[in-house]
Nucleic acid binder design. Structure first.
Lengths: 139, 139
DNA sequence: AGTAAGTTTTGCAAGTAAGTAAATCTTTGG
DNA sequence: CCAAAGATTTACTTACTTGCAAAACTTACT
């Protein structure tokens, strides 16, 4: 159970963007400041663009910029942009009716953990991180 | 962010053991009943033995048995037996003083999530799962 | 001593995440 | 139109997880 590099890089990049006042950022800038491999970052940014978190434009004066205010971008949004819908485990037999289903008390444990985690991620915005204000409201 | 197969298999196996009344279980039995690849399971069981959750003995009448009551084995114990200490992310530069440390508001987000997750795992025992009683006390 | 039932170890193959390098497309400005 | 600055895409390593197979070790029993 690990947060992937991709997700960490994505959050790191968006937080960087949130902290700076500029409106357009290049891959080179972000990758240098945040120590992220440039071509790898390019792929990550692409996903963020495709999912509508960022817009991009090539050419001089080009780069990436935010599509919405940073308080409206949650960690859950970033997670899903990068990794797709969360699925903490793959059920034993994919796309097949699971023989073990009836006796599977297992499943609900991971479901609970997943719900917990999603709630946690949903409650934190990029702005919260940029402002270093990440006390999670445990309800 | 995924629960590894290894961890899922480990929990599944221990839960199976907790549910049955026998005192000794063979790899073959567990792998057949729980649909877990036999040789892969062997490696997992080995870890559980090394970490003191199970004892094992070869030969006829041999197999694996519990080292302590199932209510005293938490998901956290199993996690740590299989994966080692939880580390949701590897810091940017391993074993090196991180240049970004001062401005790294990132880190504490993952620390919070990790703490959350560990608390969750620590509150659930194998017995809880076997008895299908996994309502987590969100405090 | 020998054999069967078990665990334990070793080696290999496929799939995926992470990283590296280079080529290609797109816009801006002369 | 041309060139430079940028994003985008493609291809190739590297390491790790998962899975598979076989060999090696250990105990109980006859």
């Amino acid at each position: 159970m690990q947060v992937s590099k991709s997700l960490d890089y994505a959050v790191r990049s968006l937080t960087y963007i949130a902290k700076e006042k500029a409106s357009v950022f290049t891959i080179r800038d972000i990758s240098q400041k945040q120590h992220i491999p440039q071509n790898y970052l390019a792929k990550i940014m692409r996903k963020l663009v495709q999912k509508g978190l960022l817009s991009s434009s090539p050419g001089p004066e080009g780069g990436y910029s935010l599509r919405k205010p940073t308080e409206d971008i949650s960690l859950k949004d970033i997670y899903e942009a990068i990794e797709g819908d969360m699925q903490l485990i793959d059920c034993m037999e994919k796309n097949v009716v699971c023989e073990l289903f009836d006796s599977c008390t297992q499943r609900s444990v991971w479901d609970h953990l997943q719900l917990h985690t999603l709630t946690f991620l949903n409650d934190i915005s990029v702005k919260d991180i940029a402002d270093n204000r990440i006390t999670h409201k445990t309800k």
